[in-house]
Design a binder for these strands. Sequence first.
DNA 1: TAGATTGTTAATCGATTAACAATC
DNA 2: TAGATTGTTAATCGATTAACAATC
Lengths: 211, 211
Amino acid sequence: MQGVKISELTLRRLPKYRQYLIKLRKEGVEYTSASEISRVLDVHHTQVRKDLQATGVRGIPKVGHRVEDLIKGIEEFLNWNNTSDAFLVGVGHIGRALLNYEGFGRVGIKIVAAFDINPEITGTTILETPVFDLSKLIDLGNRLHTRVGILTTSPSAAQDVAVKMVEAGIIAIWNFTPVKLELSENIIVENVNIYPSLAVLSHRVAEYLKK
Amino acid sequence: MQGVKISELTLRRLPKYRQYLIKLRKEGVEYTSASEISRVLDVHHTQVRKDLQATGVRGIPKVGHRVEDLIKGIEEFLNWNNTSDAFLVGVGHIGRALLNYEGFGRVGIKIVAAFDINPEITGTTILETPVFDLSKLIDLGNRLHTRVGILTTSPSAAQDVAVKMVEAGIIAIWNFTPVKLELSENIIVENVNIYPSLAVLSHRVAEYLKK
DNA sequence: TAGATTGTTAATCGATTAACAATC
DNA sequence: TAGATTGTTAATCGATTAACAATC
């Protein structure tokens, strides 16, 4: 893996393998093979091998991979075994959905504080996470050295809040708003958007209806 | 466009162009060019041209494209100008977030009914959308000829509900659960998942911290 | 041993980018 | 006219798939 650039497409496929492997583990299966993963998930077997190799795991010819090692290998590669503290800004419906999601611990994310401007929400707690007024963001960020920001505000507030996040010391923003953030080059921005997926769905439905 | 296969990557980029064009329209801009879109959105200008051509719109050399025509062209191509009635099953946090989203009308989706099994929720209305008991799904689907299903249940219920959706006459499922649905080949399934995006984010953060 | 698997190298395929002619 | 743009064809690049040697 040293020096070899990991393609984003490979990174995006890894969680899918992990999910299937976790299902196998739950069923008590100890070993599996790239060929089997390939069959079940409809991914070409050579691609499964290449993707897994990117994470640095090694299999045993004729035997396959230990499920446990494979899960660990993927999680270590994605750094999901280390917890990153995160701030969430914007306690609307999406923000609330994320705050109530209990699975983040297993993927290396811990939301340590949420922020909003609505006085009816600030001061409350959502599933152990305290909600502060937005004005506390910069101070708290600098004190806690939080590096990840989850942006779930309204589109109109997104850019301003993103700038504040950066001032608070955040280096990576998981952006759930449809806004293209304009920030310094070295800030990591990862956008989550439902429209690309809807475009594919709509187009396929339209084709289906045409026939 | 006839006979030319549209790549999924092109489909997924179209909403991005549309969003920028809508911003231009709001600002009163009448004309734009592939070159300008390219600059602003950081997409290669040839790629913008190819993507737009896939939708069938034609520009005017030296002038560019009428913003209004471009928006219309993209929306017609994606069939977002026609409304598809949709059912939503699973009124948890994500389901609620989607039910409260007011922008679906503009992208061809109308959620006409929601379903859940929790008696505290069934019988209520969320932003005009009535919530029924899940047992009503098949009957209502057959009466209303609803074709799109939005799946926002718990993972454990996902497969069963998906099967019920198909029995109710649904041909396309927008799947917000992490479950790989096993359905007949001709059912359109489009998965929305935050993990691929988180994998990219985590990996980049890990690389950043290493330096 | 034969079969099943890994892992690597080569070939193919498709998407992106470059080059350029056409034009209002 | 010169410049800016569209739209097309060719070249490049990168991702996927095929072929195959190595091995427990």
